[in-house]
């Protein structure tokens, strides 16, 4: 029964995705339809147009299994032979280094800023 509920709710989330796709035609900015859908769902929840229970389980499942949805694209990497060349090694190296820098800087910034905020509060 729980599975049916999750499937139904994922269907309901698609309503917001389709609204996002429709609305995208009228927005001259490069915002993806899924992001517009996210915004619409958020507004609908805030204005109590829909109840949290109507989407909560479906959303939880989609977010918990996020890795699954990346797997086909990861398999698709075999289509890019360049990745397996010397330049590919360079790119992987680049991404590793840059990701480490990004995470390090973001974490340190967050700790500094939130510590300062706490200090001001007291």
């Amino acid at each position: 029964m729980k599975i049916m509920g999750v499937i139904l709710q994922i269907g309901f989330l698609h309503v917001f995705l389709f609204l996002g796709i429709a609305l995208k035609h009228f927005i001259p900015l490069p915002i993806p339809s899924s992001m517009i859908g996210l915004f619409l769902l958020f507004v609908a929840l805030c204005c109590h147009v829909i109840k949290l229970e109507w989407v909560e389980q479906g959303a939880k499942w989609l977010m918990a299994e996020l890795l699954l949805f990346f797997i086909p694209s990861a398999v698709g990497i075999v289509n890019y032979q360049q990745i397996f060349s010397m330049q590919g090694l360079g790119i992987i190296f680049l991404i590793l280094i840059s990701t480490m820098i990004v995470m390090g800087v973001t974490a340190l910034t967050a700790e500094k800023v939130s510590a300062r905020k706490k200090g001001e509060g007291h």
Binding site: G20, G37, L38, L66, F70, P72
Partner: peptide, 22 residues
């Protein structure tokens, strides 16, 4: 053949409205 799965990234993005709201 696995399009259905990669498609799910879109509703999953929409789903992030839920943790934001909560």
């Amino acid at each position: 053949g696995s399009k259905l799965l990669s498609h799910m990234l879109a509703p999953a993005t929409v789903a992030f409205a839920v943790p934001i709201y909560k």
